[in-house]
Each structure stands twice: as C-alpha cells, then as structure tokens.
Design a protein around this nucleic acid. Structure first.
Length: 513
RNA sequence: GCGAAAGUAGCUCAAUUGGUAGAGCUCCAGCCUUCCAAGCUGGAGGUUGCGGGUUCGAGACCCGUCUUUCGCUCCA
C-alpha cells in the first residue's frame, strides 16, 4: 500500500518512538547499543501481552503454577547448565575476507597441516625402502624432526598462552606461523578476542572480596533449581508445569533489528515435567497449544509457521520454533524444546542433591523429562505491533495510521471526548472517565477537532472512543466509535461498563483457546 | 566485531565554492468551528550526536568517538 517494504519497518520504529512505545536507552547520552526502554504506551502493551500469556498458561491450566526466581543465581548453576564453558572461545577475524575463525581451530588446523607433511614424508619413504622402520625414520629424518619440533613448539606456546589467557600471544602464534585466511589468502588479522555470553558482576559489598556471579542468560534454570520445591510444596503430580516471566541478559556479539535482539530482554517460559517416554506426546501437545495461542491474537494465521530443528542442541531430542513473519522476514518467536532430563541430571550431579520424582502409579522414582515452551516477550511485542500497524488510505483519500491491536492488549482501552470544550460537556465527559477508570485504562482529550482526536487514538490502538455531545446532557446517551471500522453507535451511559467489559477484557481471548 | 552509509527542533527535511541555522507538521496558551487530522492569533523548542583539528570564520572539510541502518559474521 503506501509504504515500500524497506521503509515499512523504519516507519514502525519511528512510530514506536513518536507515540511513546519504545525509546532508545539513555538517549540523552547518545544511547546504549541494543538496549531499549518501553514508554508509557509500550509498557502497557507489554504488560498486557505478559498478562495474557500468564493467564493462558497458569490460570487456564490446573497443573501449571508460576514462580518468580532471582536474576542472580549461584555461579555453579551456570557451570551445570553448560553456559560457562560454551562461550569462551577465542575468536579472530580476517580483515580482508571478513571471515571469523576460532583462534584455537586455526592453530590446530595449522598443526594438522604440518602433521600431514610428516605423513607424506613417511609414505614416500615407505615406497622407497624395502625394510622400512617407521619409528626409526621418524626419529632420524632431518625434515621430519624439523616438522615435529615445530609442532611441539607451537603446542607448548599455545598451551601456555591459553593458560595465561594471553590473547596477544595467541595472535602472535597465528602471525608467526604465517597462517593465512583460506578465503582471502591474506594474513591481515584482527586481535584475538574472547567473547562472553554472560554478563558478570560481583556479589558482596567489599570490592575485590566478592565472588563473581552472572546475570542469568535464561530464566529456565530458575525453574529447574526450584522444581522440587514447587513439586513438594504444591503437591504437584506429573505431568505438571512451572511458568515464569522475567528478564534475561546476553552479551550478544551483534544485536540488531530494533528490539528483536537485545542485550537485556524478557522471556516467558514454561517447563513441563513429564514421565520419561511420554515427552514426544507432550512436545506435540505444546506445539499445537502454543501455535493456537499465537493465532488467537488475530494478526493473520499465515504469518506463523513451524521450523523444526534438524540439528539439535546436546540436551534436546526434539526442537521446533514458531516463526513469525516480521517486516524483515520469518524469524523465531517461540521455541518448543524437548529438553530430556539433561538439566535436572546436571543439577543433580553438580549439587549432589537428588532431584527425582516418586511416581505412585509406577511405584518408582525417576528424573522427569522436560518439555519447554520459551517465548521472547519483546519479540512478541514487536510481532504484535508490526502486524497491527497499518497505513490506511480512506475512501475520501485521506490517510490514517492505525494499530489494529487486539482490544484486550491495547494500552488504552477507552478515550472519552467532549464534542466541544464548552457548555458543560468537558465536565460531563470527565465524569464518564472517572466511572470507567476503576476497570480500564482510560484517557481524556478535549484539544482539537474530534476527528483529530480519533486519529490520535487510532495511532496508539485505542479500540473505543466515547464522545459526549449536547444531546448527551438531555438523554444520557453517548456516541461510541470503533477503531477498525470507524463505525459509530449511540448507547446509554448506563450500558457503557458492560459494553466495554465484553469487548476489551482478556476473557474473550482466553475463550478462543 | 568487520565493511559501507547516515546523524541538523518531538517528526519530515532545507541551508550557494566554508560566510548570521530555517520551513512544514507536531507541541503549548487562547479564539473560532463542531462527529473523522486541513480556520485564526501568539508561544516554546537547536552548543547542527559528542570531542578534537584546519580556517579570520565549520552544519559543511580532516581525525577520533558514539548511535542507527544495511551487508557479512555469530547466535542453547
């Protein structure tokens, strides 16, 4: 329609700022890369999405309960989960080809090449001599000795450099070995850098005496370490789930695409504990249930698709993403993973505590298997907003920008206007607003023409506007104008509460599930 | 992180080879009109992202830096 695809996403970002949905963090100080703040309307929309998720998972399922675990956790949690070891690879870039390599792999490959040369020398010699003594040949041949010395030197130096965490020397080894990029063929390398996934800080008020702890890179571990607490105190019977929403932190190498990938973000996760062997049943169950939940937003079912993982993480035996068609293409919105008993087993091992469940049916104990649903709240926010954002051309040729948000998720549910700013209409309108504010977020506006005020509300997705006119003073009727159709109807003031409750509450969404 | 491009009022953009930073919209205070953004009057808002340099003089030229976008790379 009006905007070109490449401009469309830009317009959404501008709209987010202009109407108080998203601001860049610390903007007056030039901002902080890949960190964003939610403004007055964004905070409401985000809260509403979170609430809808929570009700759909916890309130609607008797066997799912919610927790709220700390962002700080014992450092060993992240050793057990594998996060500490997984992201400490030293990386180096070739400036010409822009190709990134693991520095240790480059060096190991180089060593392997030298070993190849030795092997070739040995094979050549094998063919030449009848009674070939390989060990003798290896220990006496001058060229092989030279190669082997080189390998030993590199290995010694490389080990020392890694032990001392001396990244400068790791680079120097690459330079000294004259290792070239296989693509560009050049030796134009950047410095070797260590990338850490997790943000660290220290606990304990005395500087230097505290121990290093991490800001959690996922909320799931808070569920795993509490699984037995919840199971016992809640008398939960398998299968049961534990849900949680909360911030997680990842020191991404690159963070792009607005709030799609941020360093600080919010997850909504549910870990479902099941009897081993039944996990595939539950995996399929949650795939279906979660997709249905997404569809209930009414943003277009064709915008969603499953992406089944072929290559699985070490802890999983099945994994799928629900992808959403963002303005920049299909991208992951939610992950549904069959995580096996990997996490709980790891925590058993590292903590030395039994994390087993006693199954009264089979009269046996086992570590439950886990099926995880994990959705990014910020991504869901972006998906919702970008699918709801419409630049419309009206019949009279005018354009309007409207957010076709599900009414239950809209930041503001009702706007109340006096048709004119005199004759007692403002006071009358304010009374209506006062009566509604106990149940809904309501706003009041008396500035500019009423048409302009409708457009302002369209731009933030307010589903209903109530306008008070002179006749209202006599018959206690008001005009209700609906956002998407722009249709108006006349209703009694006494009917407003029920009218709104039927249309802007979460109940109607929950009933679709 | 690498490369390229960009950064001027809340938003969209101007500003002659280097010569006093402007406009429209928005916003605010009023007036008028009164059911779909368009009338009138007045007002606020900028160390031109930031820091250096060249120059008599820099929004413009040079260097650095920050942020954003795109491509590559990475992605439990």
């Amino acid at each position: 329609m009006s905007a070109k695809p490449e401009d469309f996403f830009k317009n959404i970002i501008s709209h987010c700022k202009e109407y108080g949905f998203i601001f860049q963090s610390s903007e007056i100080y030039d901002g902080l890369s890949a960190v964003y703040d939610y403004g007055q309307n964004g905070a409401e929309l985000k809260k509403n999405i979170r609430e809808y998720w929570w009700k759909a998972m916890v309130q609607m399922n008797e066997n799912i309960v919610g927790i709220d675990s700390s962002i700080f956790m014992h450092p060993t949690v992240w050793k057990a989960s594998g996060h500490v070891d997984a992201f400490n690879d030293p990386l180096i870039d070739n400036k010409d080809s822009k190709k990134r390599y693991r520095a240790d792999v480059l060096i190991e490959d180089h060593i392997a090449k030298i070993e190849d040369k030795i092997t070739k020398e040995v094979e050549k010699a094998k063919k030449r001599f009848e009674n070939f003594d390989e060990a003798m040949f290896r220990s006496t041949n001058a060229r092989i000795i030279e190669y082997q010395t080189k390998i030993n030197d590199i290995n010694t130096r490389f080990k020392a450099a890694l032990n001392d965490n001396n990244l400068a020397d790791v680079k120097q080894i690459i330079v000294d070995c004259e290792i070239v990029c296989s693509i560009s063929g050049t030796r134009n390398w950047t410095d070797v850098r260590q990338f850490n996934l997790m943000f660290s800080t220290s606990i304990g008020s005395v500087d230097g005496e505290g121990s290093t702890i991490y800001l959690r890179p996922e909320t799931a571990q808070g569920i795993f370490v509490n699984y037995l607490n919840v199971q016992k105190t809640g008398r939960m019977k398998i299968p049961f789930g534990i849900a949680q929403t909360g911030k997680a932190f990842r020191n991404e190498i690159v963070a792009r695409q607005f709030i799609f990938r941020m360093r600080e973000f919010e997850q909504m996760e549910m870990q479902f504990f099941v009897k081993p062997g039944t996990e595939m049943h539950w995996y399929e169950h949650w795939k279906t249930a979660r997709l249905k939940w997404h569809h209930s937003f009414g943003l277009g079912e064709t915008n969603y698709k499953f992406h089944d993982h072929i290559k699985l993480a070490h802890y999983a035996n099945a994994a799928a993403d629900i992808e959403f068609q963002f303005p920049f293409g299909y991208k992951e919105l939610e992950g549904i993973h069959s995580r096996t008993d990997f996490d709980l087993k790891q925590h058993e091992q590292f903590s030395g505590k039994k994390l087993q469940y006693f199954d009264t049916e089979s009269n046996s104990s086992y570590v439950p298997y886990v099926v995880e649903t994990s959705v990014g709240l910020d991504r869901l926010f972006l998906a919702t907003l970008s699918a709801a954002y419409k630049e419309e051309t009206l019949e009279n040729g005018e354009t309007r920008v409207v957010l076709n948000l599900p009414p239950a998720l809209s930041p503001i549910k009702v706007a109340v206007f006096p048709l004119v700013k005199k004759d007692g209409l403002p006071e009358f309108a304010e009374k209506i607003m006062e009566s509604l504010k106990y149940d809904h977020i309501v706003t009041y506006d008396e500035k500019d023409t009423v048409g302009k005020r409708y457009r302002r509300q369209d731009a933030i997705g307010t589903p209903y506007c109530i306008t008070v006119d002179h006749q209202s003073l006599e018959d206690n009727m008001v005009t209700v104008r609906e956002r998407d159709s722009m249709k108006q109807e006349r209703i009694a003031i006494s009917a407003i509460p029920q009218y709104m409750n039927e249309r802007v509450g979460l109940t109607s969404l929950l009933k679709k599930l």
